[in-house]
Computed example of a mutant assay.
Amino acid sequence: MNLVSIRIITAYIENLVPFYEQITGVQAIQYTPDFAELKTSAGTLAIGSTRTLQFFGGETVAQPAENRSAIIEFRVDDVEKEFERLKDFLSSYTVQEPTVMPWGNQSLLFRDPDGNLVNFFTPVTKEAMEKFNSKKD
């Protein structure tokens, strides 16, 4: 079994898609006005408007801008470089500037316009690098 994608449901797809395009540098594929995907080598971040909920049983299935338990994580080559690139853009969204975590990743934590937590990280300790280098991307 493989995790293929994470989908964010939003009431403001016109804000969220360009935000993720800016931070990732990945051009979204906008299949419809209500659904887009940003594809990376490891997986896909899908973004759907609240109007897509009708296909899953109605608007009570998911609530936009209500996430308080998941962090959307992107492994990047150099967290410091990404922070410098995005510092102005993320100024009102930044939760934690680049910091080395106890598990060996340097992490930049910020929120997207819907309030979802996003983490850009780079393994920096020997153990963390070995952990990620042993996995297929």
Rank of each mutant, 00 (worst) to 15 (best):
N2M: 14
S5G: 06
I9G: 04
A11D: 11
A11G: 13
Y12A: 14
I13S: 01
V17I: 10
P18Q: 10
F19E: 05
F19C: 08
Y20Q: 05
E21D: 07
E21N: 08
I23Q: 03
I23V: 13
T24E: 03
G25P: 05
G25W: 06
G25H: 08
G25K: 06
Q27L: 14
I29Q: 14
I29C: 13
I29Y: 15
P33L: 04
A42I: 01
A42M: 11
G43I: 01
T44E: 04
L45M: 07
A46Y: 01
G48I: 00
S49E: 02
S49I: 00
S49F: 05
R51M: 13
F55P: 04
F56G: 11
G58F: 12
G58C: 12
A62F: 08
P64M: 04
A65Q: 05
A65H: 03
N67E: 01
S69G: 14
I71S: 04
E73H: 07
V76I: 12
D77V: 11
D77K: 15
D78K: 08
D78M: 12
V79W: 01
E80Q: 15
K81D: 15
E82H: 11
F83I: 05
K87R: 15
K87F: 08
Y93Q: 08
V95Y: 02
E97R: 11
E97G: 05
P98G: 10
T99W: 08
T99H: 12
M101V: 06
M101W: 09
G104A: 06
N105A: 10
N105I: 03
L108R: 00
L109K: 03
G115M: 05
N116V: 03
V118P: 03
F120E: 02
F121H: 05
T122Y: 09
V124H: 10
T125L: 06
K126A: 12
K126D: 14
A128P: 06
F132W: 08
N133T: 07
S134R: 10
K135W: 14
K136L: 13
D137T: 15
